[in-house]
Amino acid sequence: MELTLTSRILYSLLGLFIVFNYGLLQSGVMRKIVARVAGRYGIPVYQSYFDIIKNLAKRSQITHGIMFYLGPIFRLGGGIGLFLFMPMIFGSIYFKNFSFTGDIVLLMYFQFFGMLGMALGAGEAGHPNSTIGISRGLAQFTTVEISFTLAIIAIAIQYQTLSVYNIVAAQQGGILHWTLFQNPVATLAGMLSFLGIMRHAPFNVVMAPQEIPIGPPTEYHSTYLGMLQSNRAILHIVESALFMNLFFGGATNWIEFIVKTFFIYFTTVFVGVVFPRYRVDQSVAWFVKVPLVIGVLGVIYATYIN
């Protein structure tokens, strides 16, 4: 059965709604976990809702020009684009969104797209902290992308496809068919670069309030900030879903989706709670030394051994 275009759009919007709310609640839960580790009671799990409503309800906002205005829109566009072209639920005609052959290249593009839009926007704000934050963020993210790309190349060689849907299909039939067991080296490279993609604690110096308050979004406020927060909620889940699809066998229903993405996201929070923050030069060096080398080994593994 094929859905009409209208119903595909409507089901995609429903999926976006689920992912958005799940993302907000999940970030609340993760912050609660971090607080409990620190011995605090922590924020309510629904705090993100208050924050977004508050920011959207601010009565004033100022703009620094058209690119400043477009920055958060590009960022949100990147997050939603990433969602729209990724199959969420494997085997479901309703939540496969608009995935197509070769979509993984587009997904990698969307990962960078938002950051570049944000760079242009934050640059126009004219605040030195924004510019420093952006240059640090892009420098770090570029090295993250290299190891992530190597992991994807390894998977593409192994499964002979660039389609996320086909990659998930190739992993069906039991837990040992997951990329995690089929190519553990590439999975390791991917998961290490995932730490950088999610920008949790060892690699969050770009957004850290204590370092350069607070990096790219320094001048963003009111509805701009509300938009960036919405994007964050969507992006965290969609990135986790991407890694679930690539390495952990995808999900065949929403319960499996929620369980898997929770634990994938949780790995970054776990690492973040345990390890202190890197400086940017340290994290760039780390990404070039460790995940990059593992990523090259993953490609070799996929080409010659598997």
Binding site: R40, Y41, P44
Partner: peptide
């Protein structure tokens, strides 16, 4: 942890 203002939002 002792005073923890985060719980008040």
């Amino acid at each position: 942890p002792r005073f923890d203002m985060f719980r008040y939002g």
